[in-house]
């Protein structure tokens, strides 16, 4: 694993992986959406509106998983001082924020259909809204610090503290009474989604995951090139004007 912590090796590996990941993502989206929209049954209670699940649930899963990824990378960057870990955490944030927004917007529309309200302040909805605010805070901090050395330290701290919100999101529907229903898949009584709906859901989840990986690698590559360019420009300045070297 640590082999790829070398930025150059990582760059070359990404170069090979991105086209493969990109094509696989498209493939999974195509098959997943076909199943989700055309080749899966309507729900016995909710009817056709259950199709909202195939976008809402994968987006919601990955909105939390991406934050866990960011916190893990921040921890790795703090403990082992791998510069690449910081970059991966930072480049994942925007995708996480977008997934969280998708989960909130589709959830709100689905809520209107199923519950009769776009929004309520129950523990699940509120904790996911806090997750979105954490992502926005992280992105705003990253933007405002402009690559100062202290920036990555503050971002690591924010990601690690924000991690505490994740178990609250997961537990909210089990610890407290909420309007949002309890989990359907990871629960003690076994999966409560019929196979004909579970398969499209898992296909869509794979598509969302692959899309995240593809964009993450592309963004990190761009970031590496950026850093390299800045370093080269600095060097050039020094060659042009030796007095700057001191």
């Amino acid at each position: 694993m640590t082999r790829f912590a070398n930025p150059k090796k990582f760059y070359n590996l990404s170069q090979k992986l991105i086209p493969i990941l990109g094509i696989t993502t498209l493939l999974f989206f195509a098959i997943g959406l076909y199943f989700a929209l055309f080749h899966s049954p309507a729900d016995y209670q909710q009817g056709e509106s259950v199709r909202m699940m195939y976008i809402h649930v994968p987006a919601a899963w990955f909105s939390t998983l991406i934050f866990v990824f960011m916190a893990t990378m921040s921890g790795v960057a703090f403990v082992w001082r791998h510069p690449l870990a910081d970059l991966l955490a930072q480049e994942a944030a925007l995708i996480g924020a977008i997934y969280t927004s998708i989960a909130l917007i589709t959830g709100s529309l689905w809520g209107k259909l199923a519950w009769g309200a776009y929004w309520v302040w129950d523990a699940r909805l509120t904790s996911v809204l806090i997750l979105l605010f954490l992502y926005i805070a992280y992105l705003a901090l990253k933007q405002s610090m402009q690559d100062k050395p202290i920036a990555s330290k503050m971002l690591r701290l924010l990601a690690l503290i924000g991690l505490l919100n994740i178990p609250i999101i997961k537990g909210s529907v089990q610890w407290w009474t909420t309007l949002h229903q309890p989990p359907s898949i990871i629960r003690s009584l076994g999966i409560s989604i019929h196979m004909s709906m579970l398969i499209p859901l898992l296909l869509m989840a794979a598509a969302f995951g692959l899309f995240f990986l593809t964009i993450l690698l592309m963004r990190t590559q761009t970031r590496l090139l950026n850093i390299k360019t800045i370093a080269l420009l600095k060097k050039q300045d020094q060659l042009d004007d030796p007095s700057l070297a001191a």
Binding site: W115, Q181, M197
Partner: peptide
């Protein structure tokens, strides 16, 4: 409030 069960009719 709907429950966590999803299945075709």
């Amino acid at each position: 409030k709907h429950d966590e069960t999803y299945m075709p009719k």
